[in-house]
């Protein structure tokens, strides 16, 4: 087991290496002028285009560019982001908490809703409730994140005037910047509590509701489907039948034995779910004016800022690879039948 973990951990740098090669390689498909897009912002600077290309080595070949980047990265310098106009590491430090806050606030509802509805569907197999939930899940699965986000903005925010968009009201942002407000975590809800500022906590929470809801709707459908089928699997197994035959109350059987075992396949869903969530966050941050990592990366992609993109891809690669590793480990822990050599 330990062997396996070590081997898998060693694979992570390999994954990052491959990803960075892919990105730098793809950038080679462009001409130096195109690669200058992130460096030149206005028409007036076209006069100095050649000078800018030279300055940032945009006309160099693959190996030179990769070396320039890799050498800095090995020194711990991820480069300067043309999108946020500051070192990449600074931006990640500032923006990661925002995205984490969003992801965390959506995570628990996603799991709860998915598992709960999946269980209901399985226990009412082929009944009306099951069929209805099935349709709901398929609808949730068919809703593109951006459409969901637009509907929420229009109906709930625009129509009812509830909740909010952005991270905090502007007047509060000024207040916090000029007063004494310590940013412990970078997440406004937590910082609000830690500073004893209930108003900040509420305002921040208020602005998390809609984006988190959009995420929950889009992501939990998948969990629900998996939960339903694994629960059905479990309910069909001998030990459940035996338990039933023994006359134990049905509910107790379901929750105590089957339910726990049925959760195991849901854990494997964590990887794909995280992927879907990250994809969703990119779009949601754009629509809800929520300046996190996703918004930053989307802009970087649109403006061809290679340094930012590389950093983002590395970060996501790292998160995904570690998440998958954790899932595998968790799998062994909850299900002793599984062994990895």
């Amino acid at each position: 087991m330990l062997n396996y973990i070590i081997r898998r951990s060693l694979q992570i740098p390999m994954v990052l290496f491959v990803l960075s090669l892919i990105i730098v390689g793809l950038m080679q498909l462009l001409t130096p002028q195109q690669r200058a897009a992130a460096f030149v912002k206005s028409d007036k600077q076209i006069e100095h285009l050649d000078q800018i290309i030279k300055k940032y080595h945009l006309d160099e070949g693959f190996l030179v560019q990769y070396e320039l980047w890799a050498r800095e990265v090995l020194r711990g310098n991820l480069g300067f982001s043309r999108i946020s106009k500051e070192p990449v590491t600074t931006t990640i430090r500032k923006r990661l908490p925002a995205s984490m806050e969003l992801a965390l606030s959506a995570f628990i509802p996603i799991v709860l809703v998915g598992v709960w509805l999946g269980t209901i569907a399985a226990t009412h197999r082929d009944g009306i409730l099951d069929q209805a939930l099935r349709v709901v899940a398929i609808i949730g699965w068919s809703l593109p994140t951006f459409v969901m986000a637009i509907w929420l903005v229009a109906w709930v925010y625009g129509g009812l005037g509830w909740f909010g968009i952005g991270r905090l009201p502007n007047s509060m942002l000024i207040d916090l910047a000029t007063g004494h407000f310590h940013r412990y975590t970078g997440m406004y809800t937590l910082d609000g509590l830690l500073n004893g500022r209930w108003d900040v906590f509420f305002q921040a929470l208020k602005r998390l509701v809609l984006p988190a809801t959009a995420l929950v709707i889009v992501v939990s459908a998948g969990i629900m489907r998996v939960m339903r089928s694994s629960m059905l699997d479990e309910l069909g197994k001998d030990y459940v039948r035996t338990a039933r035959a023994k006359g134990l109350m049905q509910k107790a059987v379901i929750y105590k034995h089957a339910w726990r075992n049925a959760l195991i396949p849901v854990i494997t869903m964590a990887g794909p779910m995280l992927g879907r969530m990250i994809g969703g966050i990119v779009v949601i941050e754009l629509i809800f004016n929520f300046p996190g990592l996703g918004e930053w990366a989307a802009k970087a992609a649109l403006q061809l800022d290679m340094t930012t993109l590389l950093a983002f891809v590395m970060l996501i690669g790292l998160i995904m690879a570690s998440a998958n590793l954790l899932v595998d480990i968790a799998y062994v822990i909850v299900d002793p039948r599984i062994r990895y050599e």
Binding site: L26, G279, A301
Partner: peptide
């Protein structure tokens, strides 16, 4: 292994990067 890397990566983000470059 390559397949694993690509499957693990969020599709939307990947497509975005590739299509901007194309």
């Amino acid at each position: 292994r390559v397949v694993d890397v690509m499957l693990a990566f969020p599709r939307l983000v990947f497509v975005m990067i590739v299509s901007v470059i194309f």
